[in-house]
């Protein structure tokens, strides 16, 4: 076997080396989580194409309905009936899927981030590199969280447009403040996605195994969602859609940051 020579070690002392730029950490995050970073936007993209096509139909149907005079005529009643029997159930189904999306992102993108490293032993590689464990985990969770939240946020704006006619048509009891509608628009959807991701990652570190982390993360997310819906939201000290959105977005963002900080702190204790 030929053994290659090592060239002279660079003269700079390690302490005077510059810190690692974010660009390089972003590259590694991208390379390691390429499937997540492709799959999530791709799924949202495909859903967006559907929303666009279905949204145009709903908007068209609603425009026809709104323009119909007199509203009591049988022609208008027919339009109303067709809206209620085809457009509304479809929009409602999409709305229910919207509730699931953050939970699934938390389970499939959040839980494995650290659990898989712990499961396969690669954390012994990843956490002993020069960048340092805490900086690396922080960078990775922040980068993935921001990207996922941004994609989800953009999608929820499209959903809001898609769902608007249903709200305006005033389905019984349905307003922008209804539990399932409030969650899916404004800044709320992005915030819930970020929180679901942070919960998943935290459970992954705590449980050290992917599948249990997905299950526990999912359960915790649902519990938090119910808590927000039944207990917290009615007690917000402000009124109106946007003030309530900002309060909800605010505490969810704080919770996510707290979870990520806790994950990083805990990583020091739970390794090896």
């Amino acid at each position: 076997m030929t053994v290659i020579s090592l060239p002279e070690r660079p003269g700079t002392s390690a302490d005077r080396l510059p810190p690692l730029p974010w660009r390089r950490m972003a590259w590694v995050t991208w390379r390691q989580h390429r499937s997540t970073l492709i799959a999530v936007p791709a799924l949202f993209g495909a859903a967006a194409v559907f929303l666009l096509i279905a949204g145009l139909k709903i908007h068209h149907d609603y425009a026809a309905l709104a323009a119909c005079h007199p509203s009591g005529s049988s022609a208008c009643q027919a339009l109303n009936g067709s809206f209620n029997s085809s457009d509304w159930p479809m929009a409602n189904a999409v709305d229910i899927l919207m509730q699931l999306a953050p939970a699934l992102i938390g389970a499939f993108a959040g839980a494995p981030v650290l659990a898989r490293e712990l499961e396969t032993g690669t954390f012994r590689y990843a956490w002993t590199q020069g960048i340092g464990r805490e900086r690396w985990i922080t960078a990775k969770l922040a980068l993935l969280g921001v990207v996922l939240a941004a994609v989800a946020g953009a999608f929820s704006q499209l959903f809001a447009w898609f769902f608007d006619p249903v709200i305006q048509q005033q389905q019984p009891g349905l307003t922008v403040l209804s539990a399932t509608v409030f969650d899916a628009r404004g800044v709320s959807f992005a915030a819930w996605t970020l929180t679901a991701f942070a919960i998943g990652a935290f459970c992954g570190l705590l449980l050290r195994r992917t599948v249990p982390a997905m299950a526990v993360g999912l359960g915790s997310y649902v519990a938090l969602d119910l808590l927000a819906w039944l207990v917290l939201r009615p007690r917000y000290p402000v009124g109106g859609f946007w003030p309530k959105q900002l309060v909800e977005g605010g505490w969810l963002l704080s919770l996510s940051v707290l979870l990520i900080v806790a994950t990083v702190r805990l990583s020091r204790k739970r390794a090896a």
Partner: peptide
């Protein structure tokens, strides 16, 4: 490439040659 990006000091040519 990943190891190179996670360290401030890394001799990539050496790694590739080896």
């Amino acid at each position: 490439h990943i190891t190179g990006n996670l360290n401030r000091l890394f001799d990539e040519p050496y790694a590739k040659r080896r």
